Computed example of a mutant assay.
Amino acid sequence: MEEQWIREVQRSGSRAAAEALIRARYDEIYRFVYRQTGHKEDAMDLTQSIFLAMLRALPTYRAERGTFRTWLYRIAANKVIDARRRARLTPLPLDEMEVSSEEDFTVRMQNQALLEQIESYVSGLEPQVQAVFRLRLYAEQSFPEIAAALGEQEAAVKSRYYRLLRRLREEFDPHG
């Protein structure tokens, strides 16, 4: 169905098709962004920006280069990277568990602090490294999906990701 909506937008600028396309992917992209911003308002603004960029770039989208989802995540990852350059965003831990005790709360706060340190560190790296990190961690994409989104070989993406993990362990793991 997405392909049909895309063709309608590309051919005639169909507003209904554009809205259907946005509705189909909005929640998924919003969750991806929210995990990285930690604030509803920031996530909503950034998600809107992502879809505006998607609509502007839709005439250049070609299915033979990759899936629409992959293409959209590339736009989303780049917009998050740009936003992190402009403002200090607070990512949410991936495990949003209920706090059941003071000890759990302390552990959760330590995890949040560590995630913020890691985010700050990663935000200072090259955009290609940031994109791999964000697509893997926050979008939970596979290496083939990330490779397609970035237009790179899967082996290069895996190598970049595992080098980053090694750097993060060296930087943030007191036990090595």
Rank of each mutant, 00 (worst) to 15 (best):
T37R: 05
L150C: 07
A20C: 09
V80L: 10
I6P: 01
A20K: 11
G66T: 05
E152Y: 09
E145T: 02
R15P: 01
Q10Y: 05
R69Y: 15
L21I: 05
Q10V: 01
E3H: 06
T70Q: 11
S12W: 12
I146F: 03
V80H: 02
R7K: 12
E98D: 04
F172Y: 08
S14D: 09
R136C: 06
Y61H: 01
E154G: 03
E3R: 08
G176Q: 12
P144D: 06
P91C: 09
A24M: 03
S14E: 01
M44N: 12
M1C: 06
Q10H: 05
I22A: 03
G176K: 10
L46A: 05
G151D: 06
Q36W: 05
V122P: 00
L21Y: 04
H175G: 10
M109R: 12
G66H: 03
E102Q: 14
T70Y: 04
L55C: 03
V129E: 02
V99A: 13
Q128C: 13
L150W: 08
I81E: 04
G151V: 09
A149E: 06
F105G: 11
I81L: 08
Q117G: 09
F133W: 15
R35A: 13
R88H: 14
R62L: 06
H39S: 15
V157I: 09
Q10C: 02
T37F: 05
R11E: 10
G13T: 02
Y121K: 00
F68E: 04
L150F: 08
T90D: 11
A63P: 10
R108H: 07
E145W: 03
Q117E: 10
V80Q: 02
E64R: 04
A149P: 00
T47S: 08
V33Q: 00
E98A: 14
R11Q: 13
R86W: 10
G13K: 02
A17H: 04
E96L: 15
M109N: 07
L114T: 06
I50G: 00
R23E: 15
G38T: 05
A149G: 04
L115Q: 06
L137S: 14
E154M: 05
V157Y: 07
R7D: 11
R7S: 14
E152T: 07
M109V: 11
R35Y: 15
T106Q: 15
P174N: 06
A149K: 00
